Simulated scan of single mutants.
Amino acid sequence: MTKAVGGKAVYGAAVGILMLEARFPRIPGDMGNALTWPFPVHYRIVRGASPDRVVRKGAEGTLDAFVAAARELVADGADGITTNCGFLSLFQDELAAAVGVPVATSSLMQVDMVNRLLPAGKRAGVLTISASTLTPMHLVKAGVPQGTPIGSTEGGHEFTRAILDNELELDVDLARADNVAAALALKEAHPDLGAIVLECTNMVPYAADIRAATGLPVFSILSFVTWFQSSLVPPRFG
């Protein structure tokens, strides 16, 4: 006799995603667009956690809300937790301690691993939405090596402003141009750059453009969570 044992509220989606409360457009490729993923995911919006509050204000006063939302995702059936903002590396330890399942808060957690993939004399750099508020603590919490090159879209015309000001409209062509220009500037400033890690989950739609313009491997939250998810589901073979 085959016996089925329950325990989850929802089955078939191993990854739970903690979402900022935002209204800007989530185009295909964006982490918050469910069509981006080649597998089902759970979403949970953390009320009051706006892009401005999390990125510009250090996520002040939001930890308890993120912990509660993560616990709800696990109760509903998530086997692993991630977030849709690289700046939430600040909460990596607290979330991992609170939920009892694997937690991958930030794309920044890939940097050290990417360094190990590169030839001698090459290193990964980070492209962020806000270099002015990406603190040493964000990097330490994600295990990013000291001295890692940092580039930013902060000086651009569209991307940083539209996302962090939570605007209702996004000029996708201008946002793409901001990302490509920032990546090229990062490469020019650091001749030893061997790869780029996208801190911001909203940069994923432009990853292919960045790869084409720079000629460098580009790692994002999509590559990170796809790897992460593969560890949470039964192997296809064996």
Score class of each variant (00 low, 15 high):
165 D>K: 15
220 S>L: 06
197 V>K: 01
167 E>V: 08
229 Q>P: 10
218 V>Q: 03
192 D>E: 15
152 S>N: 14
164 L>C: 13
161 R>I: 09
172 V>Y: 00
231 S>L: 14
168 L>P: 11
226 T>M: 09
152 S>Q: 13
205 P>Y: 02
167 E>L: 15
203 M>N: 03
183 A>R: 02
178 D>V: 05
148 T>I: 11
165 D>G: 14
202 N>P: 10
198 L>K: 06
174 L>D: 14
205 P>L: 03
201 T>I: 07
208 A>L: 03
201 T>E: 04
162 A>Y: 04
232 L>E: 06
153 T>N: 06
154 E>P: 09
188 E>A: 11
200 C>P: 06
192 D>P: 15
207 A>K: 09
231 S>H: 12
177 A>D: 04
171 D>G: 06
223 S>P: 13
194 G>Q: 08
162 A>E: 03
172 V>S: 08
186 L>Q: 08
223 S>V: 04
154 E>F: 10
226 T>R: 05
232 L>G: 12
225 V>N: 10
212 A>G: 11
211 R>T: 01
170 L>E: 07
180 V>N: 00
184 L>K: 08
216 L>T: 02
226 T>E: 05
198 L>S: 09
157 H>P: 15
202 N>K: 09
167 E>P: 14
163 I>R: 05
190 H>L: 15
154 E>V: 14
159 F>L: 14
154 E>Q: 15
152 S>T: 10
196 I>C: 13
216 L>W: 01
176 R>L: 02
201 T>D: 06
187 K>H: 11
179 N>C: 04
199 E>A: 04
227 W>Q: 12
203 M>D: 02
149 P>W: 07
224 F>A: 12
180 V>Y: 00
195 A>E: 05
224 F>D: 13
217 P>I: 05
178 D>S: 07
167 E>F: 06
192 D>S: 14
217 P>Y: 05
171 D>T: 03
149 P>M: 15
221 I>L: 04
169 E>Q: 03
202 N>G: 12
223 S>L: 10
205 P>T: 00
197 V>C: 06
224 F>L: 15
202 N>I: 07
167 E>R: 10
216 L>F: 00
197 V>Y: 01
219 F>N: 08
158 E>A: 06
161 R>S: 15
191 P>Y: 02
170 L>G: 07
176 R>M: 01
223 S>D: 10
223 S>K: 05
207 A>I: 01
210 I>W: 09
209 D>N: 13
227 W>H: 07
176 R>T: 00
176 R>G: 00
231 S>F: 12
202 N>C: 13
230 S>V: 09
206 Y>N: 11
222 L>D: 02
186 L>I: 04
205 P>K: 02
169 E>M: 07
168 L>A: 09
209 D>Q: 07
217 P>T: 13
222 L>M: 12
205 P>H: 03
191 P>I: 02
202 N>W: 05
207 A>L: 04
228 F>D: 12
219 F>G: 06
177 A>Y: 00
154 E>G: 15
196 I>T: 04
204 V>L: 10
190 H>W: 07
226 T>S: 14
166 N>E: 03
232 L>H: 02
157 H>F: 11
212 A>V: 06
151 G>C: 13
176 R>E: 00
148 T>M: 09
160 T>D: 05
204 V>G: 04
221 I>V: 13
